[in-house]
Design a protein around this nucleic acid. Sequence first.
DNA 1: CTCGATCCCTGGACGC
DNA 2: TGCGTCCAGGGATCGA
Length: 299
Amino acid sequence: MPELPEVETVARGLRRTILGRRIVSVTLGKTDFIDDPVALEQHLPGRRIEAVDRHGKFMLLRLSAFSGARSVTTNGDAAPASLLVHLGMTGQISPSPAAQPLEKHTHVCLLLDDGRELRYVDPRRFGRIAYLTEAPLAEELIGFGADPLEVIKEEFANRICGRRARIKALLLDQGVLRGVGNIYADESLWRAKIHPAQLGVNLNKKQAETLRRTLQEILQKAIVMRGSSISDFLDAEGQPGEYQRHHRAYGREGKNCYRCKTPIRRAIVAGRSSYFCPKCQPSPRGFAVLPLPGKARKR
DNA sequence: CTCGATCCCTGGACGC
DNA sequence: TGCGTCCAGGGATCGA
């Protein structure tokens, strides 16, 4: 499940492998997750991929102004544009030799000028792809929160304390912080010893600062480890990440806490499975925890 | 403002 | 072996 570290890993891989390549042609499969499929076919061919940026969980392939033989005055391709890519839950994007057989669920193929194809594969199609010129792109990016890697103490506290929502919901809210998902929310809360169901308004400044610091440390470490591969995450070179070996909370229900040996528990917070240590991360009053699995389940 | 519910989608796990 | 059911989850949306 690509979050900030996984998307950053993919973006770095694309920078290494496809920067400067020109798009020759576009082939589409299923398009229900693409904003305007026809725009891809019309406006991508002829453009060069000049940069790969990341904005939260979004990747932005920065495209040159069209410079081919076609008239540029009639279709607006004289201006730079971007291909916005969100990997959703199961999206993968990587270059392959054009002759290589298509993997199942390949929905976008961009033929490049060196004979390779940049392919987007996404079984669940929770991802999103959009061709955007500068103004619509700017519009898209309004409303995103702070970059969790860059956010400073005061801004982080301002965005968290004073909010009545649960801290887990705040961490997952892309309008508060851009790029944090379920895994790194749980991991940072475990390290900061904060229960996911605590309200933002009930955190003091010191707790907020601890959380900011642990979140940054975890994201940076995870980037170094090329992200977490839980089920199917692969980077732009087809390699899995390694950070899942360092998970301390996520996916560890029933396993002992690395600090105090108490079994990790799971609860639904902000609509998502949330893993935490019931001893290290004291729950707010009256918060219900799911029973540990293993016993016979009632109908 | 914040909540939960619902939908999107497929593959994998599990029970029978 | 095969079928049905549940679950995973980012994000949009809607009603309470």
